[in-house]
């Protein structure tokens, strides 16, 4: 029964109450499921490598390292410092390779090219390779995300 001045009937109100509460219950049960279906993997904030493995690098030489489950590349620059790049193509996520004879990084998927500093020079890649910070601490070479402070 709908009283002339009321917005809705008591029946509809109670129905809305039940429906709303059921929705809340459903949300309470489904939101953990939503969290469940995406596993929590995060890239490491920093990776510690033994300096000995990389000390023998000549200037301009490149050696790979593991950045979590992604490939990384370390290159010794002219001033003796290390340049760290994430070896994942910025186009569609393929892993790139270093071609020493050309001094360039190459992505085979769509023929993308990067120079020795990771800048995208040819092909579809829209951005340069991601750069990471490096630091030498005692016997270790530490590679970390830019701006990360332990």
């Amino acid at each position: 029964m709908r009283i002339p001045d009321s917005l809705f009937t008591r029946r509809r109100f109670l129905g809305a109450l039940i429906g709303g509460w059921l929705l809340a219950l459903a949300a309470a049960v489904l939101s953990p499921l939503r969290k469940f279906i995406i596993p929590p993997y995060r890239e490491p904030d920093e990776v510690t490598l033994p300096l000995a493995d990389y000390a023998s690098l000549g200037v301009g030489e490149v050696k790979p390292f593991a950045w979590g489950i992604k490939p990384g590349f370390l290159r010794k620059t002219a001033d003796g410092a290390y340049l760290a790049l994430v070896g994942v193509c910025t186009h569609l996520d393929c892993n790139v390779t270093w071609l020493p004879e050309r001094s360039k990084f190459f992505c085979a998927c769509h023929e993308g090219w990067y120079d020795e500093n990771g800048r995208n020079i040819a092909g579809p890649p829209p951005k340069p390779l991601r750069r990471l910070e490096t630091a030498v601490e005692a016997d270790n070479l530490v590679v970390r995300k830019p701006g990360f402070v332990r």
């Binding site: 953990p32 499921l33 969290k35 469940f36 596993p39 929590p40």
Partner: peptide
């Protein structure tokens, strides 16, 4: 241990 609410599921 790692997946959120995995133990409950």
């Amino acid at each position: 241990t790692e997946v959120p609410y995995g133990w409950a599921l």
